[in-house]
Design a protein around this nucleic acid. Sequence first.
DNA 1: CCGACCCTTGGTAACGTTACCGAGCTTGCG
DNA 2: CGCAAGCTCGGTAACGTTACCAAGGGTCGG
Lengths: 347, 347
Amino acid sequence: MRDVAALAGVGVMTVSRVVNGRDGVSAERAARVWRAIEQLDYRHNITARHLRLTGQPTAIIGVLLEDVANPFAAELLRAVENVVSEQDSLVVCASSDGDAARERALLEAFCTRRVDGLIIVPCGPDHRYLLTELRRGTQVVFADRPAPTIAADTVISDNVGGSRLAVSHLVNAGHTRIGFLGDLRQIYTAAERHRGYLAALQSAGIEPDERLIRRDIHNEQSAEHATHDLLAAAPAPTAIFTAQNLLTIGARKALGSAGAERLVAHVGFDDVPLAGLLDPGITVIAQDPQAMGELAAQMLLRRLRDPAAAPETVEVPTRLIARGSGEIRAGRSSATDRPAAPIATPL
Amino acid sequence: MRDVAALAGVGVMTVSRVVNGRDGVSAERAARVWRAIEQLDYRHNITARHLRLTGQPTAIIGVLLEDVANPFAAELLRAVENVVSEQDSLVVCASSDGDAARERALLEAFCTRRVDGLIIVPCGPDHRYLLTELRRGTQVVFADRPAPTIAADTVISDNVGGSRLAVSHLVNAGHTRIGFLGDLRQIYTAAERHRGYLAALQSAGIEPDERLIRRDIHNEQSAEHATHDLLAAAPAPTAIFTAQNLLTIGARKALGSAGAERLVAHVGFDDVPLAGLLDPGITVIAQDPQAMGELAAQMLLRRLRDPAAAPETVEVPTRLIARGSGEIRAGRSSATDRPAAPIATPL
DNA sequence: CCGACCCTTGGTAACGTTACCGAGCTTGCG
DNA sequence: CGCAAGCTCGGTAACGTTACCAAGGGTCGG
């Protein structure tokens, strides 16, 4: 900046005013400054600016996900980006891979870079180490899962409600023997969805049968196995509720290879791409990652404006998308008994 | 830092040495410093550090994608993140949405934050405005598409080779009337894939028929329409090559609703999730976004170490995944004529 | 014609950090 | 015992920027 000022024959303050677009600089001088800037390949250094303007926001938001490559996370990230880019903020993102130590290291890397705020899909058991940052003024919003050991804004899906809806939907189709496939029980969303499953059964006056419940299933292959197991069991389920998208895919593969995709009803939690192209289409409880990201970003921005506001938890509704697999009725066993729902709508 | 030094009763240099883990500080003094740091909620400010150490890397790299929510982009981003996180670098990402002005604004925002390097999926027609940044020392790698007006490292898929492979595969199954659905012709990858299509036809001695070629199709709905059109045309194609993943999905929907998914062969460029669960599975030319991201990041890191190296272009191979739809032979018209390939493998 | 006011302009200090250098102390060797 | 060498430690200046203040010149009303 000094070089630019020297070349343009003006003071550094004039250059500063020009690059920040402030008025109070004559057009002739401003033009001289711009010429010097181009000649010297000068580029304004925003980080130095924020150093001088301590307390001013850095216009960088940190987003910590479990895995950016997961479509749910990617959509959430995109929604955050859309909201904060309107404030000319940038997004720095990272993936924890569900590793609490990595999560902590990445969050500290963010804070050390002085991000204005954090949007976190938490994975560790305890985030009290963030209290220091909160005191220092960094704002935090948790997304998808709450962080029980720390009070902060939180956005979550209606996991219990969505699961109740899924299971009630199956009950309404006449099912009473409804299998459950769930992720690791230490994962908040998995536990909540299991809770919703039990609640729906109870409302329907159905006694849960442990033989139909498989938890701690973490990937597609295990889900496929577990589904084959369930189908082979003595009192086989007439319907299956899979409480996570990879499990939904694994279960459907198993149903397909057993030729049972039109006999056993199936509802999954979280939408899967192309589910509408299958025959029958997979009925799902769809989450809204876009709404979650948008809300999380808006809550963060609001809190940056008003740091004193009380922490709030917002629940994003889920909705059932009927595509065929969840509308298969109980007590029929003919493969020609096609569901009434249209096959290809909606995707 | 001054406050910490004062509370610990040491000089600021001692605090600096402690927070950077350098030796030359007695254990007793270091402990006093750490205590003071905790008492004051002090957090080391890396941006100020990089301000003083001009020329040192900031350990932030910028990634500009067309849309983070696109699974291809998300996987690429994740691969970049994996590589650069080993150097304790962070990733700041943004989406251009194919808008050249937005692309430029975002790239300038990155540079103004003094990122060490950029990985760009370019969308604008001209990136010469980046020359200033290159001179200033910011390194650039282009991914997925080249940027013709600027010399820089580039990673692309083998679009022509992949398309040739797809079309040859159909030719080998006996097809001579092969339809083509392609994205906007101004998009580099779309043009390349069209080129590959023509090249394969030529190798096979087949005269291209403009009536079977539909270009500038940019979304699923248009692809669905175009496919219906093709199927209804007088000399209908016996096979279709769709040169983009959304077009693949649209075309398959059309084939399904026409009941032609076992009659008309179909190969798509770029894999689509769950393609293996359909019946028949969709045969595709799979790209490798992970490899592209990894390569791009490695090239960027290499260039940061050795800025003088000559720009290089690397082509990532594609591979054909046969799932059934591409193995339907020409000249048969019975719906019972199922392909020999197994349905559900590989996904 | 003079004083008050406004507009433009630049000098200086400070943001949080570290390189550089010099000061004080201890140790070891002749 | 004296001196060189090796440490631990801190003061100061600088990185690129902007807030603050003061100064110079012009305009306008009285």
